[in-house]
């Protein structure tokens, strides 16, 4: 097969990939949005749309920005097939991206080539299937453990899932960015101490806190750029 035939064949495959990728994404999106309403019908309690709107304004905007950044950064690494699959199955930073890069390195595929596109799709599809399988087996094994997990003695553990997550993330993000982190942490602590009622709106406070952190990071970035010049 000469190079021209190979490119033509790949172009045909890639065009169909966009069609199937879009179709799969749309079906998954519809099912994910419908699921809470179907669960609501089963449980006899539909989602509260006023609370949904309030929650979306508080947290949705932050994740909207984060999703744009992730999309722009990771799509070129994953290509068409890998990209659609990775955004459907999630766990990008902690699994799909390193997995695809690892497979590409092992095989020796170069970025932007048809080989890279194929390897990336194979890698992400395999990783997603492994996760689905491990989680399904784990969940089946979890069912008999439910009475144990619901004992009152274990409740402090489940009531502190979020502090546990933020403690781990704080170390990860703060350790190399202490000069950026100290200001939002200080300002937020003082604010919550002086206005304790704000704890009921912590998710809204992410916006000013994030703005402070980004502002300081930008000043430090500019300073470093000037220093480098």
């Amino acid at each position: 097969m000469n190079e021209q035939e190979k490119n033509l064949q790949f172009e045909k495959y890639n065009n169909r990939t966009h069609f199937y990728g879009r179709l799969a994404s749309i079906i998954t999106l519809v099912m994910l949005i419908a699921a809470p309403f179907v669960m609501g019908a089963v449980l006899g309690a539909m989602p509260n749309m006023a609370a949904f709107g309030k929650g979306f304004l508080a947290i949705g905007i932050v994740w909207f920005v984060s999703c744009i950044a992730e999309y722009l950064i990771y799509t070129p690494m994953l290509g068409a097939g890998g990209g659609y699959l990775a955004f459907i199955t999630g766990n990008l930073i902690n699994m799909k991206i390193p997995c695809a890069v690892n497979a590409r390195d092992i095989v020796g595929a170069k970025s932007g080539t048809p080989e890279n596109e194929i390897i990336s799709t194979l890698s992400i599809a395999t990783a997603s299937l492994v996760t689905i399988l491990v989680l399904a087996v784990g969940v089946v094994l979890l069912i008999p453990l439910q009475p144990v997990l619901q004992t009152p003695a274990l409740q402090p553990a489940f009531d502190n899932v979020v502090p546990a997550l933020f403690g781990a993330m704080a170390y990860k993000y703060y350790r190399k960015n202490m000069k950026t982190a100290i200001w939002p942490l200080l300002v937020m602590s003082v604010l919550f101490i002086l206005v304790p009622s704000l704890t009921g709106s912590t998710s809204f406070m992410i916006i000013p806190s994030g703005a402070i952190a980004i502002g300081i990071a930008y000043m430090r970035y500019r300073k470093n750029q000037k220093g480098a010049q």
């Binding site: 932050v62 933020f166 960015n177 919550f192 101490i193 406070m205 994030g210 980004i214």
Partner: peptide, 29 residues
Amino acid sequence: GFGDTAMTAMFIGLVSAYIGSYIGSLVSG
């Protein structure tokens, strides 16, 4: 280059808001 830094800063802001709320609850809850 700054896009990457801004992402990290955004997470720092997010984590700081929650840790600040725990400190606020302890001191003035």
